[in-house]
Design a protein around this nucleic acid. Structure first.
Lengths: 191, 191
DNA sequence: GTCTATATTCAGATAGAC
DNA sequence: GTCTATCTGAATATAGAC
């Protein structure tokens, strides 16, 4: 177990506060107050408020892309790949719910050129999902899906998962959650 | 066709700008500039910036609840009800994409007591969906679903739809969109 | 690393004349 | 309904002493 530095404390405190109040509504003073020091000290750890957002967003985005790339490059069939992508998403959301919340809710607050960079990363992720779905339709494991709609729907249908882990009150078993979500995405609700 | 009043112009302009930049990032000066008059004139139409948000959020929420209540009170079977709820959601999203975008992205910016009021409305909507699902499980048209997870997943899986109509560039046929979404929610992706 | 002090900018909102 | 002018408060960020 690594002893957390004060910079890491500062970043985690920022992350928690931004989750509670939103990025724009969270002031540097709010963060400093919770750190029990004056605003000016915050700038010992970061160069600007934007830094906080960029750090978490790009780091977590990389985590999603890394998992997706490994899965796509594997020899699994398309349906198995989809299972793995969903599983990976749930795992990241359970492990870093606040970071994922930031990705879902605060990416609009990035400023160019980081904004454009981030949107490109997201578009790229959607394209990878679309490729996976096309592969499955081609090999016949998936139905004749509308790729764009299905891709949007699947990604949206797992986007809320972080919320089950962002507050201490919520404690869904991630294994059961995965089983349920995969059951629904693969087979739907009808008996 | 009703001739739009200047107040309606003002509100629509506000809605469009908030969609583009986000609520907090949109200033009263921004809105006034697009209306081609001075900031102070804005207060001829509203009493505060919060008013704009409250107006659209509660009005559109009511539209969703109205549709949901009528469907629940009907004699349709649970699977037919679910179809209708999804259909209604798509119709509202296609007709008022900017209002729905506001509901998805900006509700956190409400202030108490409106904030709490709005969260209660959303919770109530989720409970209605849960009731619908329980009914379908009981009558056997749906599988033995985990109600909480399924409810969250279905609502999330249609939440992105407004995005297909918020920009002029995007023009998905809502009938086809509905067919695809219902196909996925009911039967999943597997062939 | 911590503080005090402050520069700078900008936001929401109001008063009052035309 | 429109403007000019202004109040009031607050935000990000920096300078410089200890």
């Amino acid at each position: 177990m690594r002893i957390s530095s004060k910079k890491e404390d500062f970043l985690q405190t920022s992350l928690q506060l931004i989750h509670e109040k939103g990025f724009k509504a969270t002031t540097m003073r709010d963060i400093a107050e919770r750190m029990d020091f004056d605003v000016s000290n915050s700038y010992n750890y970061i160069k600007s408020k934007q830094d906080i957002l960029e750090l978490f967003l790009f780091r977590t985005s990389e985590e999603f892309h890394g998992a997706m790339d490994n899965i796509l490059a594997s020899s699994y069939t398309a349906d198995e790949k989809l299972k793995q992508v969903i599983s990976a998403h749930i795992q990241v959301s359970a492990k870093r719910p606040l970071e994922v919340a930031l990705m879902v809710n605060e990416w609009r607050n990035l400023k160019d050129p980081k904004y454009k960079e981030y949107v490109d990363l997201r578009t790229s992720y959607e394209k990878k999902m679309a490729r996976l779905l096309r592969e499955g339709v081609k090999t016949g494991v998936f139905k004749e899906l509308n790729i764009k709609i299905t891709s949007a729907l699947i990604l949206s249908s797992i986007r809320w998962v972080y919320d089950s882990y962002a507050d201490a009150s919520n404690t869904i078993n991630p294994v059961e959650l995965e089983r349920q979500i995969i059951g629904l995405v693969f087979g739907g609700v009808i008996n």
